[in-house]
Design a binder for these strands. Structure first.
Lengths: 193, 193
DNA sequence: GAATGATTATACCGACCGTTACACTTTGGG
DNA sequence: CCCAAAGTGTAACGGTCGGTATAATCATTC
């Protein structure tokens, strides 16, 4: 009982919401699989939707911390590759059903704007983190490059439930390696005269 | 009444399933918004899950036909670009909530294997179509290139509900243009020999 | 040992879920 | 004009949904 009931609920909720879906997971099953009575759940979180927000925030914060950690412990100019590699590790080990945030936005865009907004905020944090890795490697802000890396990672994410992790991951590094770097002031001068 | 009730049900089901979610859309609302009584729905489709399969098949067949049409009416070496452009048109006009197949797989992977399997089959058909466009442009099979194009398109797909169509589409063409072509026999000889 | 806050047990609410049965009415084609 | 097919209206089935109320029990700490 030392690990608080609150944590047990969050663990079970994350597992069920992620693997079975948000709408498809009922409060009764959630509580019983967490070894908790329904009232405990409502005492802690107030509503199913609030629990969903807590799960999203917790899981994605862990994910982002893990990516940040990978970028922090890498050689010079290896930030992007390290981030991509850690992302692929998640796809292999912990994200085998796709991205929980994308799924949440999909299920709640027309039902609970707060959940959808939280999802968008979490993705904005991922984009910002990618931007930091890009700046770590190239020494400059490159919004286009960050957005393109995000698009490739989201593509891999989406393909995991379709063709499996191995297939989805196969081309990530090659694709990222071929993103053209930002034009600098002198190449612009060369091009535009 | 010329447009059969069956079509009305399919239209309404596609709209509701896509915009509000599969589990979140009930039979009652579905029937009433289609201007049909519940029994008509069951007479035509037998069950909600069968209706879902019919909706997926119909919508995605239209999508694939549209892409195929774009590839068919393009100049030489413009097949990939034409396919990508048509895909982006869907993202702008008809796919503003993401890909219905990805959503279906996400909601039914652990509830109805038949629906998930159908989703995977539809995505395989998309990959095959991309392969045809690649062969149209380059004159050879290039599985890697096809898979990479698919990954980019899925990335754009996933980002539409997050940051909007314009943001999601912005980098598609540039990203695809920078995919390295397959190594031919003589470059392989140069590299390995 | 009393008090306090967390957890449990149980019962309940109205609403909706997907599905079926059956009898009735409408419609179009031969 | 008649008949079969398609669609309608109504009622019901057991089950689950998210959420609430209330009172009993437990562990901890002062």
């Amino acid at each position: 009982m030392r690990p608080s009931k609150r944590e047990a609920v969050l663990d079970t909720a994350e597992h069920l919401f992620y693997n079975e879906g948000f709408h498809a997971t009922g409060i009764d099953r959630l509580a019983s699989e967490a070894g908790v009575v329904r009232m405990t759940l409502y005492n802690h979180f107030g509503s199913k939707d609030a629990l969903i927000e807590a799960v999203l925030e917790r899981r994605y914060a862990r994910f982002l911390d893990d990516l940040r950690d990978a970028v922090a412990h890498c050689g010079p100019e290896g930030g992007i590759a390290a981030l991509a590699e850690r992302h692929c590790s998640w796809l292999r080990e912990r994200s085998t059903h796709g991205c929980i945030v994308i799924k949440a936005i999909g299920e709640f865009e027309s039902h609970n704007p707060a959940i959808a907004a939280l999802g968008r905020q979490l993705k904005r944090r991922l984009l910002a983190l990618i931007g930091e890795a890009v700046e770590h490697d190239t020494g400059m802000h490159d919004t286009d490059m960050s957005e393109q890396i995000l698009m490739i990672l989201e593509g891999a994410n989406a393909l995991v439930p379709v063709f499996g992790s191995d297939h989805a991951i196969r081309h990530v590094h090659a694709l990222i390696a071929h993103i053209p770097p930002a034009k600098t002031w002198w190449t612009l001068e060369h091009t535009c005269g």
